[in-house]
Amino acid sequence: MHIVVCAKQIPDPETPPSAFKIDAATNKVIPAAGISPVLSQFDGIAAEAALRLKEAKGGKVTVISLGAESAQAAIKQVLAMGADEGVLLKDAAFDDGDSYTTARTLAEAIKKLGDVDAVFCGRQAADWDMGQVGLLIAEELGWPAAIIAKGVEATDTGLKIQRVLADGFETVEAPLPAVVTVSNEFGEPRYPKLPQIMAAAKKTVTAWGAGDLGLDPGSVGKAGARLQLQKLFIPEKSGRVELIEGDTPQEQASNLIKKLQADKLI
């Protein structure tokens, strides 16, 4: 089985709030000095799911990332976990796209790989939290999709996927090829073994641009995007304290309840 893992490099979600800055003029996040971007945590979990399937059924895992040169680090991280090959989709034309252009570009790369049986994505990228790309890849490829999975196993005919619902779980089956997005309920990604880190460091990552994928630069990135960002801002936090009057704790409690009811909070 050949599984593709889509991995995104994102600004570190653990960037201290004081170091997180945006440029209001361009509606962009200013990369924080000295804080390196990281692999989106859900994509690490998707890689773990793919690797466990590979260990159970054999086959290979290819990791694809769309991003800047620095995204090599995210690819190497998944290679160190045990993925076999890495592809970086890098082109100035890809910049500033939306979920749709990202999915489209990734889908073209998956088509170009040819023999892919399944695509595993994180349930959402941990920076914008859209949760669109996995589904849109399935749409582009015309494959079935099962999203927000907490368990994936191979059956004789395809995949059996346990999905997280708002009020429980459901188990679905899908024929191959298929797209699965994996949720944090699946479990933690593995810690790479040193020999694999060494091997990953030596692997070359294939780089494809728009031309390699036969994509018209006008249809991807900012030019092809269907979503327009209107305003990016950091919400202002403010706090206000009101002391509830009352001579006894009981009286204070009942005044608090009255107040909350008046404010329609309970």
Partner: peptide
Amino acid sequence: LENLEMRGHPWRGTALE
């Protein structure tokens, strides 16, 4: 350990610089 690797310090989740 992952935090050391990614962020150069062991204190995961710190809000301080």
